[in-house]
């Protein structure tokens, strides 16, 4: 009787002990809690970079994906021969300098989806404060580039922590918020020519606006603005992810129609 009890006890304790020992013999990783950061207006670049690095490697969770180069673009060394993030950031999106591009990538990553990757990154402003976001930007800039984040950036964002509310200064300047009804003004305000060429200005990342009305219908243009992912023009498939899908919300119906008609008339 007692022999049986002891045997049962031994089996139970032995099994539990084996599980505990095995669990204790593998790498021990603890989750990291992000530190609350608070910077004064005259914070130095070094302080920002150091805080950003700690976040990148620890509590921010960035290194889980961005360190491997398989789930997400490699940020620390090289990505497909384009260099470190600090080098390539300014070239990624025309019209956004390095700082603006990095900040926007953090708060609205899917709008700046890098081709070849799936959209898995979360809006980091849901989990990080604006201090922390700017520290990360500073750290990324330091990877091969020059740190231009200053205390002023943080203060201009200061106190705005909740999701979505943190619209970076750069985007506002590039201006989706124009109320004009003049098509050219609307297009300028929305940085269309950042990717499309019109009358010799703009960048040839997307299809040219010259003669666009002769190539496609007004309906097609409207659809392409509202739902750019629906289909790319021939030869531009690779860049389709760069076209923001948010114009449908940013433009008023009148503005949208003005732009569509304006483009459709350019034969």
């Amino acid at each position: 009787m007692w022999q049986t009890n002891l045997k049962v006890l031994a089996v139970v304790l032995g099994t539990v002990a084996v599980f505990t020992i095995v669990s204790s013999s593998i790498p021990q990783l603890q989750s990291v809690v992000p530190e609350d950061l608070s910077f004064s207006g005259d914070v130095t670049a070094e302080e920002l970079v150091a805080a950003g690095q700690a976040l990148f490697e620890g509590a921010g969770g960035c290194a889980d994906c961005h360190g491997l180069g398989t789930r997400a673009p490699n940020l620390l060394t090289d990505e497909a021969g384009t260099g470190q993030i600090g080098v390539r950031c300014a070239r990624r999106v025309t019209g956004q300098d390095c700082k603006a591009y990095l900040f926007n990538s953090l708060v609205d990553p899917n709008a700046l989806q890098v081709e070849g990757y799936i959209p898995i990154m979360a809006d980091m402003s849901r989990t990080l404060s604006s201090e922390q976001l700017w520290a990360l930007v500073a750290f990324l800039q330091s990877q091969g580039g020059e740190v231009t984040v200053t205390g002023a950036d943080i203060e201009s964002e200061g106190g705005v922590e909740s999701a979505g509310a943190a619209q970076p200064a750069a985007v506002t300047a590039a201006g989706p918020t124009s109320t004009s009804s003049d098509p050219v003004e609307i297009m300028t305000a929305n940085a269309c020519l950042g990717c499309h060429v019109m009358d010799g200005t703009g960048a040839p990342i997307g299809p040219s606006f010259d003669g666009i009305g002769g190539r496609v219908s007004a309906d097609y243009i409207r659809q392409s603005i509202l739902d750019p992912r629906a289909g790319a023009s021939e030869g531009y498939e690779a860049f389709i992810q760069l076209m923001p899908a948010t114009f449908g919300e940013q433009l008023s119906a009148a503005q949208l129609e003005a732009v569509v008609q304006f483009l459709a008339d350019r034969r």
């Binding site: 997400a72 497909a80 990095l102 953090l106």
Partner: peptide, 10 residues
């Protein structure tokens, strides 16, 4: 020669 293209990461 293989000049880096415009892809790369955020």
């Amino acid at each position: 020669g293989e000049e880096p293209g415009e892809e790369g990461g955020h």
